[in-house]
């Protein structure tokens, strides 16, 4: 009986080792969105390209979309922009842009210069929709299904690897249902 007790520290060390090892390589800054499985929050915001046109969450109805949160003040958004253009043009992905806490003129110049991957651009200068979505660091990219339900959030730059590994399977899965 006493012998067995001698193994207690070893067992504890192994358990602790497994727990700590499982944490290696995980990015603690990446949080799962609280909105997974819930509809996109309600909003009424104007179109980035047309001040007079009001957009609501109905823009997500009908087909799977990516919702990309960006701003001209965000250096990482510039990094991923070419990949978004590639996704929109080569892969035919429907991307809705959320111009977050930005200036309309700056944003339009940016899209003019770097290309516009967004089928719809929502202009959110005060960050109200961003706040309701729980955006804490641009760029963020959400997968929204055809019913307007949030399915996934990726925080950080979207590139080919992130597309292939994280986003594409979801877009395909939710795309099949419609």
């Amino acid at each position: 009986m006493k012998r067995i007790l001698l193994f207690v520290p070893l067992v504890l060390a192994v358990v602790l080792g497994v727990v700590l090892f499982a944490g290696i390589g995980k990015d603690p800054n990446e949080l799962e969105s609280a909105l997974i499985g819930k509809p996109v929050p309600e909003f009424v915001l104007t179109d980035l390209h047309d001040e007079g046109r009001e957009l609501t969450r109905d823009v997500f109805k009908g087909q799977v979309s990516l919702l990309n949160v960006w701003g001209t003040w965000c250096p990482a958004c510039r990094d991923e922009h070419a990949d978004l253009v590639w996704l929109a043009e080569e892969k035919g992905v429907r991307i809705v842009g959320l111009n977050y806490k930005d200036n309309r003129d700056d944003a339009l110049v940016w899209l003019d210069r770097l290309g516009d991957p967004y089928q719809v651009s929502i202009y959110d200068p005060r960050g109200s929709l961003g706040f309701d979505l729980g955006v804490y660091g641009a760029p963020e990219t959400y997968v929204i299904d055809a019913e307007g339900i949030v399915r996934y959030r990726h925080v950080g730059v979207v590139n080919e690897k992130v597309w292939e590994q994280e986003i594409k399977p979801l877009v395909e899965r939710y795309g099949e249902k419609t």
Binding site: L31, E32, S33, A34, L35, F131, D132, L133, G134, Y136
Partner: peptide, 8 residues
């Protein structure tokens, strides 16, 4: 706030 940002 939890509804938006999670239990975190």
């Amino acid at each position: 706030l939890v509804d938006r940002f999670g239990e975190f």
